[in-house]
Design a protein around this nucleic acid. Sequence first.
DNA 1: TCACTAATGCGACAACTGATGCATTAAGGT
DNA 2: ACCTTAATGCATCAGTTGTCGCATTAGTGA
Lengths: 203, 203
Amino acid sequence: MTTRPEPARRPGGRTARTRTRVLDAVLAELGEHGYDGLTMEAVAGRAGVHRATVYRRWGDVGGLLADVLDAAGDDAWQPPDTGSLTGDLTALNHEIQDALTAQPPIVAALIAASFRSEKAEHAQRRLWEDRYARCESIVGRAVQRGELPPRTDARRLLIAATAPVYHQLVLLRTPPDPDLPDQAARTAALAASAGAFGAAEPA
Amino acid sequence: MTTRPEPARRPGGRTARTRTRVLDAVLAELGEHGYDGLTMEAVAGRAGVHRATVYRRWGDVGGLLADVLDAAGDDAWQPPDTGSLTGDLTALNHEIQDALTAQPPIVAALIAASFRSEKAEHAQRRLWEDRYARCESIVGRAVQRGELPPRTDARRLLIAATAPVYHQLVLLRTPPDPDLPDQAARTAALAASAGAFGAAEPA
DNA sequence: TCACTAATGCGACAACTGATGCATTAAGGT
DNA sequence: ACCTTAATGCATCAGTTGTCGCATTAGTGA
């Protein structure tokens, strides 16, 4: 059989331009009106594109958000490398706090919006997984420096260090506490060096 | 002046009955269809009440959720009291994990839905504040038992202990880890007994 | 340069959402 | 028991949302 079941895409030129303009519009709308002000109508209007085009390519608001989130994962971000575990975790927490309190609050709006649709939820989950996987290098370096026991569970340590910052800013929605990033990082590093995140012994 | 600026409410009988039926309908809809299946239409239909009634009394979906959240705060819940700090925190974390993974997932749906409207967000924030305030008794008891230094910052300790559970289940949305509640509780208790949550010294 | 057609623009449509005026019911006081 | 009127039911209407067929534009390979 002649393999041509699909009608041959055209990803270049206008299509790519439309995508860029629409995704930019999504970010702008998110920053201005938040997740609930994000309507297909407004996005299409700001992007200078017809409503039907947005519906056809992205389906619904969740599709737009998923595309934005996937695009956000395609960067070269690397976790901080300060030379010490506490330093790395502290710097990481400050990055998180800065991102969550930035104006306009795009990151916070994206997280909040990821609850609105299945697609956005999956994209957000992929992004979390990617970010935490990259951060595991922080723990690896600390182990090599002898700051941590060799079998430390990297993921749990990272979560213990970062969760309080997310918790306060995203769920509790209390005003940002300038001491919290350092405090949470130090607490986690202290517990980790005491072996609190030791993984199971191998056979 | 004769004090009667407002037209004298009628909170009894039918009004109270309507409220109960509507709020029950909200919970049922949340459990079945989640936050995005929560439409005024469906709630009114399930409650056996006219659409216009729901619109007039609650305004929108956010108003419904806010009322549900406020009603949820009017209970006699008390934090666990097991006789030890680690025991209390562990029990608390298990309660949290159970609530977040219960079927139908009402608590998780409420948290997610609180991102959809200003009113629901404020109600959710009041609920968080109330719950964490009640939990401070855990820390108070631990201090009296001599498990913790007297000037321990109760709120930060509680957040350090509980945040990982919320983070994994609500934000990261990874499957529930049966060890996490214990692990996070032990870690926080360890750091606390080492003085990691010491408040500033008084003058 | 030209033909082919994917991608978009355009307008019209049904379905849904939230608001409003009026009739009806029932709560609360006498 | 009776009156007043708050609360609700009911029907209707404007605005919005998502879909679809057709016309137009422009990417792609020849």
